[in-house]
């Protein structure tokens, strides 16, 4: 098996001294779909914005992001601009604000095609039309003349996907691509991403707060909390038998379409990055916290094939999903920031 397409090692990001990402490792192979879930502030978006060097200057980024044998964090700016949109593309939650309102779809798609594929003139039109067809926009030729405001949210997101595909990327990072869309349109867009992935053998990173969306569309899922990956496993295994108390909590908190059961809320809120709790960042909210959890940030360890867990008690816990267990109070020495 060939090496991974992209490999993130020891990635750390801080804003004004406050850590947003605290040591993240990922490896993604060609054609693979990795889902990343987590609540707001978990660092799931920042990780990938940092990898593509899309963060503002004040962000301090450390670590290594290897695309084949290039370190994206160190390549010259011109090279990065070529890779971004070329080999690696990213789409965002709100397509309307990612498109330029005063340019036609043709201009915006054409720009990407000229930049990354060196096309010009007629060949741009032909390729732009092919891309719009690929993403399922009816009357592609007519739509090239349209402006973003003349199209619906779902159609704009299709245009964004078409633009991302313009450079024939090896990796597409989709950050909450369907969150702003209606349910039936969301299903269309997710289906489209799967289709494109199958046809082009592109790797996909799907960032979402919706565990259901990720479960149905990804091979592997990583759960992030407070700037770290706390569990990573094949999608099926993660949802059938989560091993980290936080991953288990997220699943228990999720209502289902089957018979209603009492939802198990995770007590408390995510920690303030400037005042991280001692040891495991989840321990103040955890029902299984023990003194062992305060002895340093738990490593993300490979406990079984294909599965990594960052929990000091991972070996001994037998998690029972959907059980109401209050968090455990443990003696906690004062922490100085």
């Amino acid at each position: 098996m060939a090496g991974p397409l992209i490999k993130i090692e020891g990635l750390r990001v801080a804003f004004d001294g406050a850590p947003a990402v605290r040591g993240v490792d990922f490896a993604i192979h060609r054609g693979e779909a990795l889902g990343i879930v987590g609540e707001s502030g978990s660092g799931k978006s920042v990780t990938w914005l940092a990898a593509l060097r899309l963060l503002p200057e004040k962000a301090v980024v450390e670590g290594r992001v290897s695309l084949d044998d290039e370190n994206l964090l160190e390549v010259p700016v011109e090279r990065m601009e070529h890779l971004r949109g070329g080999r690696v593309a990213m789409i965002f939650q709100d397509p309307a604000s990612a498109l330029n309102p005063v340019l036609t779809i043709r201009r915006q798609l054409g720009e990407a095609l000229a930049l990354h594929r060196g096309l010009s003139g007629r060949s741009i039109d032909a390729e732009a039309k092919r891309l719009l067809d690929l993403v399922g926009i009816p009357d592609a030729a007519g739509r090239l003349k349209s402006y973003p405001h003349e199209m619906s949210g779902g159609q704009n997101q299709r245009v964004m996907i078409a633009m991302a595909l313009a450079g024939n990327p090896d990796l597409l990072i989709a950050d909450e691509p369907t969150t702003a869309l209606d349910v039936t349109i969301q299903a269309q867009i997710l289906d489209l991403l799967q289709l494109v992935r199958r046809e082009t053998n592109m790797a996909l990173v799907l960032i979402s707060h919706d565990l259901g969306v990720v479960a149905e569309n990804c091979d592997r899922v990583a759960v992030m909390y407070a700037g770290r990956v706390i569990e990573e496993a094949p999608a099926r295994d993660l949802f059938d038998a989560p091993r980290h108390p936080y991953a288990c909590g997220l699943i228990d908190a999720l209502p289902t379409l089957d018979a209603p059961r009492r939802l198990v809320a995770i007590p408390g809120v995510v920690p303030d990055p400037r005042r991280m709790p001692q040891g495991c960042a989840f321990s103040p909210r955890c029902a299984h916290a023990a003194p062992a959890c305060l002895g340093g940030v738990p490593e993300l360890r490979r406990l079984e094939p294909g599965r990594r867990i960052a929990c000091a008690r991972a070996g001994e816990l037998d998690l029972q999903p959907a059980a109401v267990v209050p968090p455990v109070e443990i003696a906690r020495p004062e922490v100085t920031a």
Binding site: S152, G153, G154, Q155, D182, V183, T184, I185, A187, Q188, D191, D210, L211, G212, V213, V214, A215, E216, N217, R236, F239, D240, I251, L254, T256, L257
Partner: peptide, 18 residues
């Protein structure tokens, strides 16, 4: 409606605009 646990079922995907 996405459901974790259950693998992707056969979906009725509506065509057309909202």
């Amino acid at each position: 409606a996405p459901t974790p646990g259950a693998q992707r079922r056969q979906r009725v995907i509506l065509t057309g605009e909202p």
